[in-house]
Every structure is written in C-alpha cells, then in structure tokens.
Amino acid sequence: DLSALRVEEVQNVINAMQKILECPICLELIKEPVSTKCDHIFCKFCMLKLLNQKKGPSQCPLCKNDITKRSLQESTRFSQLVEELLKIICAFQLDTGLEYANSYNFAKKENNSPEHLKDEVSIIQSMGYRNRAKRLLQSEPENPSLQETSLSVQLSNLGTVRTLRTKQRIQPQRTSVYIELGSDSSEDTVNKATYCSVGDQELLQITPQGTRDEISLDSAKKAACEFSETDVTNTEHHQPSNNDLNTTEKRAAERHPEKYQGSSVSNLHVEPCGTNTHASSLQHENSSLLLTKDRMNVEKAEF
C-alpha cells in the first residue's frame, strides 16, 4: 500500500496539472479547448457565450486583445492532455480508494470495455495498479461463464418462442383441414349439385314461356288486323247491294208514291245487322237523297 506522504505528493502534482488545464472563465477543466490569436485557451462554450454578448469583436479576458469567431481554432494537443489527466485522476481514485477533492464528473469518461483496460497499462506502473489488474484478471474467467449461461438462457427462450410460433402455425392448418373434411358430406355435395341443376332447368323453362307469350301476342295482333281488313271488305261488298236497293226503291216510288213515303220513313230507323257505323252513315245519306228525289217527283206529278 501507498504511504500517506506519497499520496499527498501525487495529489499535489495532480492539482498543479489541473490548474494549468483549467479554463480562466469557468475555472474547470477545459472541455473542447479553443485557442485565440494571443495563444490563450478557453472552453469553446465559454468563448461563444462571451462573443454573443456583444456585437462585433470582444476582448480576451487575459490580455484584452480583440477576439472574433473566425480567429478561434481548435487545439487537439490540449484536448489530449486533458484526457490523460482524467485517466490519471481515475487511476488515483481506484488505487487509494479516496475521492479526489477537486474531482469532476468523471463517470462519463469511464469505460469498462476490454480495449480501455489494455490502455490503462500505459498509465502508471504502481503496486495498487498491479493489484487491481490481478483482481480484474481473476474476475475475467467468471465473466465468460456468466456470458455462457446468459447465452444458453437466451437460446432456450428463443427455442420456446420458436416452438410456440410453430404450434400457432400448425393449429390453424389443422382446424382448416378439419373444417374441410367435416363441413360438407358427400350427400350434401350431391344435393347441392341437384339443386343447381334444377335451378338451371327452371331458368331454361322460364325463358321459352316468355317467348311463347310474345308469339301469342303477335298472333293476336295479326288476327285483329285481319279482322279489321275483313270488316272493310264487308262494308265494300254491302255498298253495291245498297245501291241495288236504292234503284228498286226509286222504281217503286215512281209507281206508288204514297205507299213509299211511309216505308221510307220506317227504313230510316232500321239498321242492317253486321255493318259498322260507317255503313250506317252512308245509308242515312242515301235515304235522305231518296226522300228529296221522291218529293221532286211528287211535285212534278201535281203540276
């Protein structure tokens, strides 16, 4: 173990290094160091905050020279020094078990990766560091076993998940096959086929009936047209017969005018059967003409 005197000496050296690497504005270890034209180094955030307070150039807090945003430059070497100082402080805390008085939040800088452990060898070769390295080497064999167990647990979990997924996939297939086998029997399929065939026959029977009705309507229309044509021909046949009657009536009127007047009046009210309204109107006109002729003949006879 380190003596108290040596611990104090190391602590004083760390404090001196820390004062050199402090920012003059925030009085902390410089984060993202930036250098000016006057070779003074500050935190990048502190300098941008200072420049944004005034429009135009501002003055350096140490030498009062003008500073602009374009004049600022990043210093990589200074950032490396800060990183190495942080590593020294971490090693000091691990070796002594004491917390550094002016320690900052170094938890963000710590890294437990194997590459980081290899890099620590180049920091300080001390008894405390050696003991700590031995402890780490002793704890390393235990870690692979834990990793193997965790991997086995994960693989077993994956296997159970896969088996569950396969079961879920197989179950719908089985149910679907069961439904297909038990849903419709052979008799049901035959009945469905016969039902479809009967429906098709009914459709075939319905369509000819409609065509037959249309044919019957067409035949009825044709018969009505033929009947009207026969009526017209009958009226045409009746007209010459009426003319013959008129000639006979004229002759009778010349011989017996008194008797014919009474008979002509009675004939006005008689309509021949089986004739249309057109034929009756023609008869009325003929009878009126005959009456006028008879009157003329009677007057001539009187004179």
Rank of each mutant, 00 (worst) to 15 (best):
D1P: 05
L2T: 01
A4D: 05
A4S: 09
L5M: 08
L5C: 11
L5E: 09
R6V: 08
V7Q: 09
E8H: 10
Q11L: 08
Q11V: 12
N12T: 06
I14W: 15
I14L: 11
N15D: 07
A16V: 02
M17Q: 14
M17C: 06
Q18R: 08
K19H: 06
K19E: 10
I20K: 05
I20M: 06
I20G: 03
I20D: 12
I20H: 07
L21E: 15
L21F: 07
E22M: 12
E22I: 02
E22H: 11
E22A: 04
C23I: 15
P24I: 10
P24L: 14
P24W: 14
P24G: 00
P24S: 12
I25Y: 11
I25A: 04
L27W: 11
E28P: 14
E28C: 11
E28S: 08
L29T: 09
L29R: 06
L29N: 02
I30S: 11
K31Q: 07
K31E: 13
E32D: 05
E32V: 10
P33H: 10
S35Y: 06
S35A: 07
T36S: 07
T36R: 13
T36I: 11
K37V: 02
C38D: 13
C38W: 15
C38R: 15
H40G: 11
H40T: 13
F42G: 09
F45I: 07
F45G: 07
C46A: 15
M47V: 07
M47R: 12
L48K: 11
L48H: 11
K49R: 10
L50I: 06
L50C: 08
L51P: 08
N52E: 13
Q53M: 06
K54L: 07
K55G: 03
G56T: 10
G56W: 02
G56R: 07
S58I: 11
S58A: 02
C60M: 15
P61G: 08
L62M: 03
L62V: 09
K64I: 09
N65P: 01
T68C: 04
K69F: 00
K69S: 08
R70Y: 03
E74S: 13
S75V: 09
S75I: 05
T76R: 11
S79T: 13
S79D: 10
L81C: 02
L81G: 14
V82P: 00
E83I: 13
E84S: 10
E84M: 10
L86K: 13
K87S: 05
I88D: 15
I89L: 09
I89H: 11
C90Q: 03
A91E: 12
F92Q: 14
D95S: 15
T96S: 06
L98S: 02
E99Q: 06
A101L: 11
A101H: 13
A101E: 05
N102I: 11
N102R: 15
S103I: 07
S103R: 09
F106W: 12
A107K: 14
A107L: 02
E110N: 13
N112H: 14
S113C: 07
P114R: 12
P114F: 01
E115D: 13
H116M: 04
K118I: 11
K118Q: 11
E120I: 05
E120Y: 04
V121L: 13
V121I: 03
I124R: 07
I124G: 07
I124F: 07
I124A: 09
I124L: 03
Q125D: 04
Q125R: 08
Q125K: 08
S126A: 10
M127Q: 00
M127S: 08
M127T: 04
G128C: 12
G128V: 07
G128E: 09
Y129S: 05
R130F: 04
R130C: 06
N131Y: 11
R132G: 11
R132I: 01
R132A: 04
A133Y: 06
K134Q: 10
K134G: 14
R135S: 03
L136S: 11
L136W: 02
L137I: 05
L137P: 08
L137V: 07
Q138C: 08
S139I: 03
E140C: 06
E140T: 10
E140I: 10
E142V: 09
E142W: 05
E142G: 06
E142D: 10
S145E: 15
E148N: 09
T149Y: 15
L151F: 08
L151D: 13
S152E: 02
S152A: 08
Q154K: 02
L155V: 10
L155D: 12
L155N: 11
S156C: 07
N157S: 09
L158Y: 08
L158P: 14
L158A: 09
L158S: 12
G159V: 11
T160M: 12
T160F: 02
V161M: 10
V161H: 11
T163M: 02
T163C: 02
T163E: 04
R165C: 05
T166S: 07
K167R: 13
K167T: 00
Q168R: 13
R169W: 03
Q171P: 13
Q171T: 00
P172L: 07
R174T: 15
S183P: 06
D188W: 15
D188F: 14
D188S: 11
V190G: 06
N191L: 00
N191I: 00
A193I: 00
C196S: 05
G199S: 10
D200H: 04
D200V: 05
D200R: 12
Q201S: 08
Q201L: 09
E202M: 00
E202S: 10
E202Y: 00
L203K: 08
L204I: 11
Q205G: 05
Q205R: 15
T207H: 14
P208Y: 00
P208W: 00
Q209F: 01
Q209A: 11
G210L: 05
G210R: 09
R212D: 12
D213K: 04
D213M: 00
D213R: 00
E214V: 14
I215C: 14
I215K: 13
I215F: 00
S216E: 03
S216D: 11
L217V: 08
S219M: 00
A220M: 05
A220H: 14
A220I: 06
A220P: 14
K221F: 14
K222S: 04
K222N: 02
K222F: 00
A223F: 00
A224G: 01
E226D: 07
F227C: 14
F227L: 10
T230L: 03
T230R: 04
N234K: 10
N234P: 15
E236S: 01
E236G: 00
H238I: 14
H238Y: 00
P240H: 02
N242F: 03
N242V: 05
N243G: 03
N243Y: 00
N243C: 14
N246K: 13
N246E: 11
T247V: 12
T248F: 03
E249A: 11
K250P: 14
K250E: 11
K250A: 09
E254R: 00
E254S: 06
E254A: 01
H256P: 13
E258F: 01
Y260S: 13
Q261R: 05
G262Y: 05
S263L: 02
S264L: 06
S264I: 03
V265K: 08
V265M: 01
V265S: 06
S266R: 05
S266G: 12
H269L: 02
H269P: 12
E271Y: 03
P272M: 09
P272E: 05
P272C: 06
C273I: 00
N276D: 06
N276V: 08
T277R: 15
T277D: 14
T277E: 04
T277C: 05
H278E: 11
H278D: 04
S280L: 03
L282R: 05
L282Y: 03
S287V: 00
S288L: 12
L289T: 13
L289S: 01
L289C: 15
K293R: 01
D294T: 08
D294W: 01
R295T: 02
R295E: 01
M296K: 09
M296A: 15
M296C: 02
N297M: 10
E299D: 08
A301G: 02
F303S: 13
